[in-house]
Amino acid sequence: MRKITIILLSILILASCKEQNKSKNQKLKVVTTTSMVTDLVQNIGKDLIEVEGLMGSGVDPHLYKASEGDVSKLLNADVIFYNGLHLEGKLVEVFEKMQHQNSKTIAIGESLDKKTLIGSEYFASNYDPHIWFDIQNWKIITEYVIEQLCALDPKNADAFKKNGQEYLFQLDDLQIKLDNIISTLPKEKRILVTAHDAFNYFGNAFDFNVVGLQGLSTATEAGVQDVQKLANFIIEKKVKAIFVESSVPKRTIEALQAAVRSKKHNVIIGGTLFSDALGNPGTKEGTYIGMFTYNVDTIINALK
């Protein structure tokens, strides 16, 4: 709490200096939160903007706390793109304060019709924030980001629209590719068990029964009863594999595997999925499209 207070005070003190330090000839300076948002903005802005992401590979946005070093990044930004829907839980207060200081903060999740969002049984009036796991959501968000960048930097609007359209075509191709891969797995085998509830949009989009050991936020701890209940479910449904997540400690899934084995049933750990963060920059999994393809390949190969 003390760290957040210091950050908020820093914003109040430094916000007035922002306009003085900005040059008209500079590229649009964009700060993003999660690696998925960073990848999206970079695909649209390319070398016409400067993008700096706060969260790298393996970082859990549910638990991420702004550091003092983040303050200068946020204050020097012309615009901040973040997921919203309480994904970046511990940054919400910082973003709200910055809005009051006339800083441009954009929650991409606000572009989606709330009727299409998945409600949360844990938090009233809140929604599942893992919206990127439905490609149709990501296409709507892509169009929204194009619109926002065009408004912020009109001189490069044509380039943003061109880049964005190319990316939308890539998302169309991704949808077709993943549909074809998933069609090879019988529907009765489409049961995805992971560390936390990050894949509900994926489940709806690709007809999977998705079960997470923890809730929508990794801040929600799984108890012994949760582990035993899910172990019984795995045995009943004859689930062949369960999955670790790159941004969540694997001990919870290992505990689940041990619980299943203690009941004289075997279940393998089918691999590590990327849920709340992309892979390392420069790798296939370091992009949204590469991450999604890798995840689906891993799931299908393990559950076959």
Rank of each mutant, 00 (worst) to 15 (best):
E236G: 00
H130E: 02
G286M: 10
A255V: 02
F208D: 02
A222D: 06
E50F: 03
A159G: 00
Y122M: 04
G69I: 05
K139I: 13
V59C: 07
L278M: 04
Q175W: 04
E221M: 08
E93H: 03
Q20N: 12
Y122A: 10
I242D: 04
L14W: 11
I6T: 14
N163D: 08
Q175I: 02
Q257L: 06
F81N: 01
Y294C: 05
D172C: 03
L75T: 04
S275A: 14
F160P: 00
W138Q: 08
T33K: 02
Q225P: 00
S103A: 14
K284E: 15
I299P: 04
E121W: 04
D172F: 04
T293M: 11
P249S: 14
V37F: 03
T38N: 14
L152G: 06
I106M: 10
A259E: 13
L256C: 07
D134W: 02
Y167P: 01
L168N: 10
I118S: 07
K97H: 10
S23Y: 09
Y82H: 13
G89N: 12
K161S: 14
K229S: 14
K18T: 11
V30H: 00
F81Q: 01
A302K: 05
G84A: 03
G53K: 05
K65W: 01
E68Q: 15
K3C: 02
T33A: 08
I49L: 03
S275L: 06
N232M: 12
I182L: 06
N21K: 15
I181T: 14
I80P: 02
S246K: 14
N209D: 15
K304M: 09
L28K: 07
H130M: 03
W138T: 07
I4L: 15
K304S: 08
E88G: 05
E166G: 00
L63P: 00
E121S: 09
L185R: 06
H62S: 07
I131W: 11
T218Q: 11
L74Q: 07
I289Q: 05
T38K: 12
L12G: 12
L87G: 01
I6C: 06
F233K: 13
I234T: 08
C17K: 13
V51W: 03
Q148I: 11
G45S: 02
K24D: 14
D78T: 00
A258K: 15
N200L: 12
G286V: 07
L185H: 05
N209G: 00
A222N: 07
N295C: 06
Q170V: 02
T220P: 03
Q26P: 01
P281R: 07
T38M: 09
L112S: 11
A124G: 07
I299G: 03
L9G: 13
G53T: 09
S16M: 06
